[in-house]
């Protein structure tokens, strides 16, 4: 697969994530239609598309927050099945950042970060706290460690949420519209953290409408519409001459202003 201009080369040997003929229905409604899609180790993919196109549903299937009904999803070679242990094992390796942050409001920032390492990874508390502080420094808010999420701004909360996922040392990070709930002036601080993460070689799948970010970090763009993957391609190609008419319309709408 093609490489982006800004980030280091992606090692596209064995796919980190692979979706094969994945289908999903909500009752009668066919949300995902025959999704085929691979992400290599270290590859950064940006998924875009109009709302209701199934992009969030697709990445939520990868850590089984949603179940797919047909097809296969493989994470690092392991197939996702209904087996709880299998699901938990995959979730340990797949970090996720949500649109609404979903920090735990009854725990301090530091406790938010150390909870999963201590209880899931069985990391000793002291080590988990040191590591948490390290990640808080990387997202540039170590001084907020003892506050509660409710006392932070939206941008700070989302950076804490990113740090919380990173504390589990995941092999892949999923971002589900991470900047959509933020005030405009806070979007940049979150995107900067994500760009840094991309440059360090993290495998990322990111659902976003931030096309500037996509141009900077993406190895591949995926355009979805009405439950289908319409177009896949490196950002230079994708933005300069999209092949599909639907992609052109969509890009015209979001890049117009």
């Amino acid at each position: 697969m093609a490489q982006s201009n800004a980030a280091p080369a992606a090692d596209t040997g064995a796919p980190m994530i692979e979706l094969r003929n994945v289908h999903k229905w909500y009752g009668e409604f066919h949300v995902l239609k025959d999704i085929n899609f691979q992400v290599g180790k270290g590859e950064r993919v940006v998924v875009c598309g109009p709302s209701g196109s199934g992009k969030s549903t697709m990445i939520r299937c990868i850590n089984r927050l949603e179940e797919h009904q047909k097809g296969q999803i493989l994470v690092n070679g392991t197939e996702l099945t209904a087996d709880v242990r299998n699901v938990e094992a995959i979730r340990r390796e797949v970090g996720m950042v949500f649109q609404q942050f979903n920090l735990f409001p009854h725990l301090t920032v530091l406790e938010n970060l150390t909870l999963a390492p201590i209880w899931v990874r069985k990391t000793p508390r002291k080590e988990a706290e040191e590591q948490a502080m390290e990640y808080l420094r990387r997202v540039r808010i170590p001084d907020q460690a003892l506050k509660y999420p409710g006392q932070l701004s939206g941008g700070q909360q989302q950076r804490v949420a990113i740090a919380r996922s990173l504390c589990m040392k995941p092999q892949v990070m999923l971002f589900d519209e991470p900047t959509s709930a933020l005030d405009p002036e806070m979007i940049k601080e979150v995107l900067d953290v994500m760009i840094e993460l991309a440059q360090e070689g993290m495998t990322m799948i990111c659902v976003t409408h931030e096309m500037g970010f996509a141009r900077t970090v993406a190895d591949n763009m995926v355009f979805m519409d009405r439950g289908e993957i319409v177009e896949v391609g490196p950002p230079t190609e994708f933005f300069a001459n999209p092949k599909s008419e639907r992609t052109r319309t969509f890009l015209g709408q979001i890049l117009a202003h």
């Binding site: 709880v84 094992a89 979730r91 340990r92 949500f98 609404q100 979903n102 735990f104 909870l115």
Partner: peptide, 27 residues
């Protein structure tokens, strides 16, 4: 308790028991 709290706990790989005990029940 908002659905997002359950999802965040799931996404971190917490088991059902850990999710309930540490995240959901306290709230």
């Amino acid at each position: 308790v908002p659905k997002g709290q359950f999802e965040a706990a799931d996404a971190l790989g917490l088991s059902y028991r850990q999710k309930m005990q540490k995240i959901v029940l306290p709230q």
